[in-house]
Design a protein around this nucleic acid. Structure first.
Lengths: 161, 161
DNA sequence: TACACTATGTATAACAG
DNA sequence: TCTGTTATACATAGTGT
């Protein structure tokens, strides 16, 4: 029987903690589910036990968002890899071309000097290269990255209620 | 007074739904907080009302993870932009070099042919270029991307308890 | 609109076996 | 350790003001 209000601090007894964790976690999940259904809300919940086990709940629409989030990260990671590889290949090709030129003009000539910084393309897509360092967790650039499913912009506020 | 068990389906009356949402959301947040403190767990909770309002709670350690996640995405986005720009610059430099060679060898010569696919560098970092298409939401590659704070590998299972 | 009240249902920690 | 029981605290929907 519960006697009096329980004190809001870590339960010291490991056994009691484990029991309490299991019960409270289940209730929390149930209430998250109730809220999402009764009030037509989207809810995502993730719980890590102090032993590292992971439990989570997400209502249907949020499942898609989480799925999108995972896809998004994967796409970004692959994009980074691909671009880096492409750049490497292009640079190596540059080296070969330079050598070829060098061999053609003969030794003593300083060869062609191309400054990468000044060889910047057409000016008609300059807007793509701004650097946005604001923290965001979302889909602001999804069109460029070919995310197929439309999604919302999700700004997570880290304040607690 | 509550008469009988409540039926687990969307509350139709918009006013009652709103009231219920507010109460249940507060309770859910409180219970999430209780769980995290009493049972030394990490909990993150995000709730969207059906009007689009967002509410969330995250326990202290997960705040950092969420913060890391945001940083991670920002870094990835910037990385993608940077890599693409670098690639573009390298390719443009290629073009210039090719033209220079072409003008040197004169018209009628087919110019140098460099096959990008076969010009692959030193073999000592080949492992960096594998493409992992498994869905993951985590930090497997953080070292390469200069995430400064150490973090865990977070695999979200989308099943609901 | 929004808060206070209350009957009833739910959650919980301690206890029993 | 685990499972069931139970006294108490908490949550909730409806109603009143």
């Amino acid at each position: 029987m519960v006697r009096g209000k329980i004190e809001l601090k870590k339960i010291e007894n490991a056994n009691r903690l484990q029991v309490s964790f299991t019960n409270r976690r289940k209730v929390l999940m149930k209430k998250a589910n109730d809220l999402s259904i009764l009030c037509d809300a989207d809810v995502a919940l993730i719980v890590f036990s102090n032993t590292g086990d992971v439990y989570n709940f997400s209502s249907r629409r949020l499942k898609r968002i989480i799925s999108d989030l995972q896809s998004f990260q994967t796409i970004l990671l692959n994009q980074v890899e691909t671009s880096r590889l492409q750049e490497k290949i292009a640079l190596e090709e540059n080296q070969l071309l330079r050598k070829q030129i060098e061999s053609m003009v003969g030794r003593g000539s300083s060869g062609p000097q191309v400054d990468p910084e000044s060889s910047s393309s057409d000016e008609n897509d300059k807007e793509d290269h701004h650097s946005d360092t604001s923290l965001q967790l979302g889909w602001g650039k999804r069109k460029k990255l070919k995310i197929e499913r439309p999604a919302i912009t999700l700004e997570v506020q880290v304040s607690s209620d």
